[in-house]
């Protein structure tokens, strides 16, 4: 006879399994559940009746309009076929957008390309960023504040401007190629991939991303390093530990949680890469730099797509939202929200 365990830990007989049901939904359980829900509802209503809740209302209204409604819209639109240039009204097509997704290899390629870009740029950013952070916080370096302010600049320039600035730099007779020539190497066709190496363009985007976001990691790591209590270092110095040992055994382990948060933030942010792609390559040449956000843009808002449909765009958007939400959940698990808010 098969033995089962009910969720309450009671050992029960398979034949009497129906009893679990009766046991689970007995009166006290139901009463408890309803009381709980009732309490929740009452609390909510009481909160809403308080005048102070009025202060939250405008912001909540904005968030409902800008986030909740769009999400609901996307979930609904997923099952329709509609393009304003083609259809008078949305047509219900059931799951056929999923069929398009399966057929459309370009969407998978663009997702893969985004991941490739991420795996090229994020490790370099992390390494370079931490190196600079160590340099800036070293006790031998003077003018640390000045350095921090200067390194902030690349991060704050609007991404579009970075794109068009690098367009002039990467131009085939531009300063980068002149520099490469002057040290005796072969100049590269950075952006005009049809005449050169097609993967160059993606590498260019990675370079851009590294240039733009290394300062973020530097500044974040600097503030992480500086939040480590000084007396630990003093104790280590008194014990005669070497600089390297202090870094390896105190600084790195103590800034681990900030490091993970920063890494996750970078990973999530590289799912957003759009502005630089638009300004530098417009997804080209061909599809060589069409990242996933840019592919969504192409499908939904331009006429360059093979499958121009709001429904299909909604499906692609839902996938992106899903990935971003999953990663965000991880980050929120790491952060101690309660402590930060009310600690």
């Amino acid at each position: 006879m098969t033995k089962l365990f009910s969720s309450n830990g009671y050992k029960i007989n398979f034949l009497h399994a129906h009893r679990t049901f009766a046991f689970k939904f007995n009166r006290p359980f139901l009463a408890k559940t309803f009381k709980f829900a009732d309490l929740h509802l009452k609390n909510m209503m009481r909160n809403l009746r308080r005048p102070v809740a009025l202060l939250a209302l405008p912001a909540v209204a904005f968030l409902i309009l800008l986030v909740i409604y769009p999400t609901v819209y996307l979930w609904g639109m997923m099952f329709f076929s509609f393009h304003p240039a083609r259809d008078p009204y949305p047509i219900f097509v059931g799951l056929s957008n999923f069929g398009i997704l399966m057929r459309d290899s370009e969407s998978w390629w663009s997702l893969l390309r985004t991941l490739l870009l991420m795996s090229m740029s994020v490790p370099i950013q992390i390494a370079l960023g931490i190196f600079l952070a160590v340099l800036f916080t070293s006790k031998y370096t003077r003018g640390s504040l000045m350095l921090r302010v200067l390194i902030l600049i690349p991060m704050m320039i609007p991404s579009v401007i970075i794109g068009l600035n690098w367009k002039t730099i990467l131009y085939s007779h531009g300063p980068l190629n002149e520099f490469i020539k002057s040290i005796g190497l072969e100049p590269q066709a950075w952006l005009s991939a049809p005449f050169g190496n097609p993967s160059n363009t993606l590498i260019c985007l990675a370079i851009l991303d590294v240039w733009q976001w290394t300062p973020f990691i530097t500044l974040a790591m600097v503030s992480a390093f500086e939040s480590i209590p000084r007396d630990i270092y003093e104790a280590a110095y008194i014990d005669g530990a070497s600089e390297f040992k202090i870094f390896r055994l105190i600084t790195l382990p103590m800034s681990k949680s900030s490091f993970i948060t920063i890494l996750m933030l970078r990973v999530i942010d590289s799912l957003k890469i759009f502005d630089t792609v638009y300004a530098l390559t417009y997804g080209g040449p061909g599809n060589a730099t069409t990242t996933y956000p840019f592919y969504i843009f192409k499908t939904g808002f331009t006429l360059m797509s093979l499958y121009p449909s709001y429904g299909y765009t909604a499906l692609l958007s839902i996938i992106l939202l899903g990935v971003a939400t999953a990663l965000t959940t991880v980050i929120m698990k790491i952060l101690k929200i309660n402590e930060i808010l009310w600690g």
Binding site: V67, L74, L265, P293, I296, F297, I318, L321, T328
Partner: peptide, 8 residues
């Protein structure tokens, strides 16, 4: 952290 392009 949500990508704006997804809700545009």
């Amino acid at each position: 952290m949500i990508p704006p392009v997804a809700v545009m």
